[in-house]
């Protein structure tokens, strides 16, 4: 629970309206903090100017780690730690190592990536975040524009309204996440002074 910021929130119910609105809001120089959507909207990340994620690169590194771990461990065990004659095969039966090597590659890559994903997106049980609109996971695409000291809220609201937003409001919300439960309302920031 850190800083509290002020946001102008505009809700859209159609991608066809959302995309031009995103374009205009960005062109006007406002900072779109995020757009919350109920499903992945292809191209929205580019429209918002986000860079590509490098999650898959991380996955590749985890995978390589798995490959190396499997090969190194098995080779060391079978050749130097405890060599055994199994069915007259060589002590380094490479073809017989392939299945386990493959499995560990996949295991490391998958587990590593999911954990990285959860870490980057701050996803875990009992994590709670501010939700700008409860229908953001149902049928609304919620555009959240961060206000600075210079921002004229009314102007932003008018802009969103004229660009097809079906609902526009201003919210104060804490940045980041905190531990909490969704069945209890959080009164964490309402009473506090809002600091910009």
């Amino acid at each position: 629970m850190g800083q509290v910021k002020k946001y102008v929130v505009g809700c859209f119910d159609d991608e066809k309206v959302l995309f031009p609105a995103v374009k205009k809001v960005r062109a006007a120089g406002y900072k779109i903090q995020d757009v919350y959507t109920p499903m992945p909207v292809h191209g929205l990340d580019h429209a918002l100017g986000m860079r590509e994620t490098s999650l898959h690169t991380a996955g590749f590194i985890y995978g390589i780690t798995g490959t190396t771990t499997a090969l190194v461990c098995m080779s060391w065990i079978f050749t130097s730690d405890w060599p055994l004659n199994i069915g007259g095969k060589p002590h380094l039966p490479l073809p017989a190592f392939i299945p386990i090597t493959f499995e560990l590659t996949v295991l490391f890559a998958a587990v590593g990536m999911v954990l990285t994903f959860c870490y980057l997106c701050q996803l875990a049980p009992f994590v709670k975040k501010h939700h700008f609109h409860e229908r953001a996971t149902d049928d609304l695409m919620v555009m959240v524009i961060e206000c600075t000291a210079k921002t004229n809220e009314e102007e932003v609201k008018a802009m969103l309204n004229s660009n097809g937003a079906v609902e526009v409001n201003v919210q104060e919300a804490p940045v980041g996440w905190w531990l909490g439960r969704y069945d209890r309302p959080s009164k964490l920031f309402k009473t506090r002074e809002v600091a910009y």
Binding site: Y36, T37, P38, V41, C121
Partner: peptide, 19 residues
């Protein structure tokens, strides 16, 4: 897990699903 539907999260989610 505190999912919000953020565009960045969806982008990562898509990448994760694909990999």
């Amino acid at each position: 897990f505190g999912w919000t539907g953020s565009t960045k999260h969806w982008q990562r989610h898509e990448s994760l699903s694909l990999v």
